[in-house]
Amino acid sequence: MIGKLFAADLLKTRRTGIWWVVLIGAAGLAAMQALNFGLRYDYLVYDTYAADPWGGLIQETSMFVPIAIYLAMTLLMGMIANIENRQNSWKQTLALPVHRSEVFASKLLCCLVQLLAACVLLAASTAAVGLLLGFGGPLPYLDLLTLGFYPMLASLPMLGVMLWMTLTMRNQAIPISLGIAASMVSVFGASMPEILPLSWPMLVVRGHETLRFVGLGMALFAVLYLLGSIHFSRKDVA
């Protein structure tokens, strides 16, 4: 039954601007670096990153990935929840012969698909920028694919919080404000204590024990998801 719920949720998003958020967010980061390298081509390509232009492009792009991911999680979950709120369709959705936990999981899967699509688009658009700038050598496929994927996995605790809050709170201003604030603070993640989950995406971007913080992000998300699913199942959100 969860497959039908997931298909229905994806169909609902077609009538919103969600996929534009995915496209503009990923392409926007690449476009920003195209402008950055275009304006400072000689300095960046022949001086700063002369030994590895591809690595330089990926490094310059990656510094903005954490804030983009946090903003994407906030906006996407807010828009997904707002579909039900705007149409006052929670009663109809929860009246279906399905467990509430399946409804909760379907909303999560919908957002995850969009985030994964954004990661793929970021990799493709960054590769396109490098090719347009005339970078030689083989494409660093693995580095391009992990450019958004690893920070996204380390950011999953925020998705757990956004999923929980947006689906159980009628007032979307609270979770959206929290998500925007978190995205702004994440810029300084590298200087935060490692115990704070907000620091994990930037630490991953800096190459600091990448797999450790990816694993921590997934583990904490699993806990938050379980708690959120239990709360959603018991709370009257209609």
Results as ranks from 00 to 15, higher is better:
Ala72Ser: 15
Ser62His: 00
Arg40Cys: 00
Leu139Gln: 12
Trp19Tyr: 10
Phe104Leu: 05
Phe37Cys: 13
Gln33His: 09
Cys119Gln: 02
Val21Leu: 10
Arg40His: 12
Ile67His: 01
Met158Val: 13
Met63Phe: 09
Met77Val: 07
Glu84Pro: 01
Leu122Ala: 06
Ala34Tyr: 14
Gln59Pro: 00
Cys111Val: 15
Leu35Gly: 14
Ser155Asn: 01
Leu75Ala: 11
Met158Asn: 11
Arg40Thr: 04
Leu76Ser: 01
Leu23Ser: 10
Ala72Phe: 11
Met77Tyr: 06
Leu96Ser: 01
Met152Pro: 05
Val120Lys: 03
His99Glu: 10
Leu156Val: 07
Ile67Thr: 06
Gly55Thr: 03
Ala34Leu: 15
Gly148Lys: 07
Met79Trp: 09
Leu76Tyr: 15
Asn36Leu: 15
Ile58Trp: 00
Gln87Glu: 07
Tyr41Ala: 13
Thr93Lys: 03
Glu102Leu: 08
Ala117Ser: 15
Glu84Leu: 02
Phe64Asp: 02
Gly56Thr: 14
Arg86Ser: 14
Gly55Cys: 07
Gly137Ala: 11
Cys111Ala: 15
Leu116Gly: 03
Phe104Pro: 00
Gly38Tyr: 07
Thr126Glu: 09
His99Asp: 06
Asp143Lys: 07
Met79Val: 06
Gly78Glu: 11
Ala95Pro: 11
Leu112Arg: 05
Asp47Ser: 15
Leu144Val: 04
Ala31Gln: 13
Pro140Tyr: 10
Ala95Asn: 14
Leu153His: 03
Ala68Phe: 05
Ala117Tyr: 04
Leu132Cys: 12
Val65Lys: 02
Phe104Asn: 00
Leu133His: 01
Tyr43Phe: 13
Lys91Phe: 05
Asp47Thr: 14
Leu71Arg: 07
Ala72Thr: 09
Ile83Thr: 12
Asp52Tyr: 09
Gln114Gly: 14
Leu75Gln: 03
Tyr141Leu: 14
Cys119Ala: 08
Ser106Trp: 07
Ala123Trp: 06
Ala105Ser: 12
Met77Arg: 04
Gln87Gly: 02
Val98Lys: 13
Lys91Ile: 03
Ala124Gln: 02
Ala50Lys: 13
Cys119Ser: 11
Ala72His: 08
Gly38Ser: 03
Thr74Asn: 13
Leu75Tyr: 06
Thr126Tyr: 05
Ala118His: 08
Asp42His: 12
Ile18Asn: 07
Leu96Glu: 01
Leu144Cys: 09
Gln87Cys: 00
Val21Phe: 03
Thr16Ala: 02
Ile58Glu: 02
Leu76Met: 15
